[in-house]
Amino acid sequence: MTTMVHNETDEDATVGVAADLLGLTVRTLHHWDEIGLASPSHRTPAGYRLYTWDDLERLSRVVAYREAGLTLDAIRDVLDDATAEIGDTLREQRAQLAERIHDLQQLDERLERMTDAHERGILMGDDEQREVFGDDWDPQQSRAARFVWGGSRQWAQFAERSASRSKSQWRELSESMSALQRDLADAVGRGVEPASEEADELVERHRELFSNFFPLTRQMQVCLGRMFEADEGFSSYYNGIGDGLATWFCQSIDESARHHGIDPETATWE
């Protein structure tokens, strides 16, 4: 809040008195003096600053404009230039403030979405999720995943990406995953060998698609492949896409890892 000087005084004010009157620090008054913004008219024989009534009035105006958000250079222009249009300066300041408020509102909205994404995973309602991912999709899956993975770096990365992903982008990603699953089912149905070039291409395509959720290294992919085969829920899901797909996909991921110099038996989640 701006502190105004109400009463004239017959005596000049010392820097300490001036600072107390205006709610400033002595150091601030020294700085303003050094840069020529608001200097005392007098000094004692010992060199101490003394502020007249007019000096205090100028200081009050400096404080008022500073609290309005003007820079010290802009304040100097307003106070020293007789031709300066104070109204124009203040309107410009308001315009800048409005822009800052807009930016802060957008930042607040992004933070709100990121907070929700960390708690919910996918920022769509249940009906929207079924519309995008299909009628068989269970919206509880992403919420349940938070309880399993919520404290991990990968969940944080997933949430951060989810916060900025639109419904159409989710749909595009879902369609790409569905296309991959159809190609995986076709490959296992045709008896494609896990170590073949075609299998390697499918594994790499899976890794790249999955990296839309969080960065997936080849070692991490090996761990996922083992989970796809060993976990009853995952294996039922993949085998429902194609008979024997869970085991075939796990083997294909292992072989692809070997082709990149990784021993799948020692692969870790990193």
Results as ranks from 00 to 15, higher is better:
123 L>I: 07
3 T>Y: 09
219 Q>I: 07
199 A>N: 04
166 S>V: 03
219 Q>G: 05
67 E>C: 01
166 S>Q: 05
189 G>W: 09
104 L>V: 12
262 I>R: 02
190 R>S: 11
13 A>Q: 07
157 Q>T: 07
166 S>G: 14
241 I>Y: 04
167 K>L: 15
6 H>L: 13
154 Q>H: 03
179 A>T: 15
232 E>L: 12
97 L>H: 13
237 Y>H: 09
88 D>F: 04
229 E>H: 14
59 L>M: 08
266 T>A: 09
39 S>E: 09
264 P>Q: 03
183 D>C: 11
52 T>G: 15
117 A>M: 06
56 L>P: 02
51 Y>W: 10
258 R>Q: 12
55 D>P: 02
157 Q>F: 01
167 K>W: 03
183 D>G: 11
83 T>W: 05
12 D>R: 13
135 D>N: 05
257 A>T: 05
1 M>R: 09
86 I>Q: 13
211 S>E: 12
71 T>E: 11
60 S>H: 02
15 V>T: 13
129 Q>P: 08
126 D>P: 10
34 E>P: 05
8 E>M: 12
149 W>P: 00
165 R>V: 05
69 G>C: 06
30 H>Y: 06
76 R>P: 00
193 E>M: 08
245 L>Q: 09
220 M>A: 13
18 A>M: 06
103 D>R: 14
163 A>R: 03
146 R>F: 02
15 V>H: 01
12 D>Y: 12
188 V>D: 05
111 L>A: 12
249 F>W: 15
181 Q>R: 10
231 D>C: 06
258 R>L: 09
207 R>G: 03
266 T>H: 08
48 Y>F: 14
223 C>Y: 02
99 E>M: 05
156 A>Y: 07
217 T>C: 04
95 A>I: 07
137 W>A: 07
34 E>K: 13
155 W>Y: 02
